[in-house]
Amino acid sequence: MNVKMKMSPQMRKRKIKDSLVVGVCLAPSATIILVFTYMAFIFCVFLSFNKWNMLSPMKWVGFANYREAFTSPDFWNSLKVTFIYVIVAVPSCVFLGMLIGLLLNWVTFARGTFRLLVFLPVITSMVIAAIIWKWLFDPNVGFINYILFSMGVQASHWTQWLKDPSGGALVAVLVVGIWKRVGYNGVLFLAGLKNISPTFYEAATIDGANRLQKFTKITLPLLSPTTFIITVLQFFSAFKVIESVLVMTKGGPAKSTEVLVLHLYENAFSYLKMGYASTVSVVLFFLIMFFTIIQLALEKRIVHYQ
């Protein structure tokens, strides 16, 4: 308060100019986000208190959609499937990404080619990729079983892949999700690794540290900011997974791969329950928000900055 009172006209002028700059810079992006995400989302929140099939007029129902969601076994099932997906996909993508980053960091020969080949899944469309994978996973004519069987693997419910409701289908969907993302993480890790100053390693060598020690005492801690960002981004995408599931299994067999966003999508466009679907999306928003806040809170404890 005091400071403001004492401000000279010149300083005030600068202050005004400053906020003008901020305003001008933010206006276009903020407008886009406000109109096409938040306006639409606020409409969604409104819809979540209505019954609406998009064809008849909507009807205010209060919390009925929320009650329906929380008492519906299908909703809880899709929540469970989503959690399993996130719990498996996030660590494996981070771990495999780190592995790829480390390998890419070692390589000196044909570096660009390796980078491109690792990155290819990231740049192709998920719809195309999922169509191809669906065929590769076919239990009878697919290439994966062909290889597995010729290696002597016995047929079991797992090798039914997309038709196995007791896990095989979810594994297949996870494989594709991880495959699509791992190159992206690998390149991010590569960049992180390159940012670690070699002096740390030199000092460690002088102190007589072995390779494992160097990895756990230098690489991992110094990589933690990268790991953190990758985990957060991975988390967003894993929670919102849909395209691969939609193409490969449509949530089946027997709902064993029905993730939340697919549950929402089916209810909205196949069952014409837009109100209920909006409810699911609102719940999903707060779920992701909750976990993001936890992650941000953990950031300070886990992440070491160089």
């Binding site: 992006s29 995400t37 409409f43 998009m54 849909i242 929402l264 999508y265 999903l284 928003f285 928000m289």
Partner: peptide, 23 residues
């Protein structure tokens, strides 16, 4: 404001499809 920007990554685009069509 920054959190609001980040928040857009938490909204599934499938849910906002119909509202966006109207917009």
């Amino acid at each position: 404001l920054f959190l609001m920007f980040l928040g857009t990554m938490m909204i599934p685009s499938q849910a906002t499809l119909v509202p966006n069509y109207v917009i």
